[in-house]
Design a protein around this nucleic acid. Structure first.
Lengths: 163, 163
DNA sequence: ATGTTTAGTTGTACCATGCAACTATTATAT
DNA sequence: ATATAATAGTTGCATGGTACAACTAAACAT
């Protein structure tokens, strides 16, 4: 622990606020794009990482497999992904983004980017890049932390932010 | 718009991940502290800003007043806040943190700070402080944005993050 | 005085989530 | 080989956080 308590207190506070705002935005975001965040993230991941099982998705996003199952079912019902039985293991369904799904994904990604562009128009490029780097580092830190916690203390474990 | 599209794309991506992790932590956090985030934030705000009406809390956190009403009712039922009728306006209840509530608040704040201390032990103080500043700036940016949006386009409006 | 705004409550609905119980399939151990 | 475990996935149920709409009561405006 080489961090000053003041900074930690501020981090703690800003995190709580950030998360609160993020939740507040859920409905507005959904209204603006027609895709909820989970759907968007799943779609992104499937788009970039080829066909994957539900279990693999659940692991990636640290979701309960039941949640991943429901989310993919919802994606499937909208026609954004297709599932095919794995040839190697009949328990496994492999999910793949359809062309409709990738169309949605690109559409929403562009809306998201426009949003951030507008939101951060007063920021300098340097600040934005800096924030981005630190945010990435933070996400990585949280991921490592919760993985190491899983090994030590069974499931659940971590709590990266303000609840 | 003076930001590079690459950085915006990365921000967009890291935000989505960040929010996802934040949501994943809700249960773990509650288990660790016994207070959910909303409760914690409300309590913090009431602790720092004296007796406030439900409407004032709703405005601060950009919550529907019905949500704020329920959350404060929950706080009250746990004995963390007390309400007194406003002498000036019989419609208004003024909420105030009880000693039990402030005890809880300080306890949870300390757990949260310990968590962040442990989480970020590999970060330098400079990095942490930098991240904190940028996060604060970001929160402020989002707040300004959603306020200006409210004036232009009616309610709802903004979407600060990845859904 | 009467109509309008405001503070707050309550009913209802929604989404994201987890846990537990279950099925179907695969892997392991003897 | 067969019985026992482990794994992938689904579904039922519960919870938390949220909004919207309909309502009550009080205050304000004219």
């Amino acid at each position: 622990m080489n961090n000053d308590i003041d900074v930690l207190h501020r981090i703690e506070h800003e995190m709580a606020i950030f998360i609160r705002r993020a939740e507040a935005a859920r409905i507005a975001y959904f209204n603006a794009t027609g895709l909820d965040r989970s759907t968007y993230l799943l779609l992104t991941h499937l788009y970039d990482n080829g066909p994957l099982s539900i279990k693999a998705l659940a692991d990636t996003f640290q979701l309960d497999i039941s949640t991943a199952s429901r989310q993919t079912a919802s994606l499937e019902s909208k026609g954004y992904v297709e599932r095919t039985a794995s040839p190697k293991d009949a328990r496994v369904s492999l999910l793949q983004v359809t062309s409709s799904g990738s169309g949605q994904l690109l559409r929403v990604r562009s809306i998201r980017q426009s949003f951030y562009t507008e939101l951060m128009q007063e920021w300098t490029l340097e600040e934005t890049a800096n924030f981005c780097d630190l945010l990435q580092k933070f996400n990585q830190t949280v991921e490592n932390y919760s993985k190491s916690n899983k090994n030590n203390c069974g499931k659940g474990g971590s709590s990266p932010d303000g609840q």
